[in-house]
Amino acid sequence: MRFGILVNEGPFNHQASDSAYKFTEAVLRKGHEVYRVFFYYDGVNNANKLSEPPSDDRHIVKRWSELAKVHGLDLVVCVAAALRRGMKDELLAEGFRISGLGQLIEAGIQSDRLVMFGD
């Protein structure tokens, strides 16, 4: 089955990004397809390559980048939400791209399930 994942909160403040990551991992482990992971609202901050958590904590940004690399995931950051928050191309971690909100709607159309993680 094909999944779309929506992440509505930034890293660390809220568990949403962690839950979305664990869920996405499980989707892939179970042999399903992830059509796209879309980052909206403060969720765009999950793409910030300058994030530097202490070494004994999980690296939320890097973890998404690595999952994307291994599984060829499409990690899309909403352009309008990103611009509001100063999240520009030069700050994007590997594997993320900035695009329009239409990419979320398209993921809703193309996926069998759209699963939202937020606050």
Binding site: M1, F3, F23, A26, V27, K30, H32, D112, R113, L114, V115, M116, F117, G118
Partner: peptide, 12 residues
């Protein structure tokens, strides 16, 4: 994941 596959769509 199995529950979402079997019972989806999802309302959060």
């Amino acid at each position: 994941v199995d529950i979402v596959v079997t019972h989806g769509p999802v309302t959060a």
